[in-house]
Amino acid sequence: MDGAHTPKFEPVIRAAGLDGVLVSFGAALSEPANRAALAFAAAVGRSGIEGVEECAPSLVSVFLRFDPLHLELGVLVQRLSTLLSERDWYDAAMPDGRRFIRVPTVYGTELAPQLAEAAEAAGLSVEAAEEQLSTARVRVQTIGFAPGQPYLGLLPEAWNIPRQTALTKAVPEGALVVAIRQLVLFSVSNPTGWRHVGQTALSLFRPDSDTPFFLRPGDEVQFVPVSRDVLARYADDPNGGAEIEDIR
């Protein structure tokens, strides 16, 4: 499963349990593979294959859940192969309506206690780690794990750090965590194997709202450093003080 995407990577279709299929566009994260996954998921949604019950993109893959008693795996794989052959998915455009969002973030302190540990894993000083994380303009590559929760990347190579061997019991909503050149911003409190390096006041999931999910794949985000006092001011703002502009 290691090795980077090359232009020669062929999409792979594999069974996932009894009632799932995974179409993978790469073994490692790359921008073309990510764009391929987003575009192919949209195309599967439009194709309306009977027996397919759910379709969701992840970082470089598309997961389909289907009814295995009414749609044979072999038939589904054939349909997906045909769809795959229709175009070069690695060349697909980004989704429309993307935005650039600057999110106030406290790095380190008791709010985000693993900054130093993560910096050490990345071979950086704490100052350099904060500098790199806070100036990176990262893109939402997929929404997953928890409601409206983004995987963001890619960070500089130094951040290709592994997950922890044991899970952190819980990080709070708004926690910014890091591993394998990616950031994840937590939408609800959950356990994680990633390291907690920053804290925001952004509410990503609003179940009572007409627009329950704040971020979308393709949006770009920068986690701008602020003090704890500044962050505290945004406690009642669901956007956590974020500044939003459209990407044209």
Partner: peptide, 21 residues
């Protein structure tokens, strides 16, 4: 092998996940 560095992928109910330990 490579257990802690693989890409996050879709999960379905029934999956048996092995954590780092």
């Amino acid at each position: 092998s490579e257990g802690l560095n693989i890409l996050s992928e879709s999960i379905l109910p029934g999956d048996i996940q092995i954590t780092g330990d």
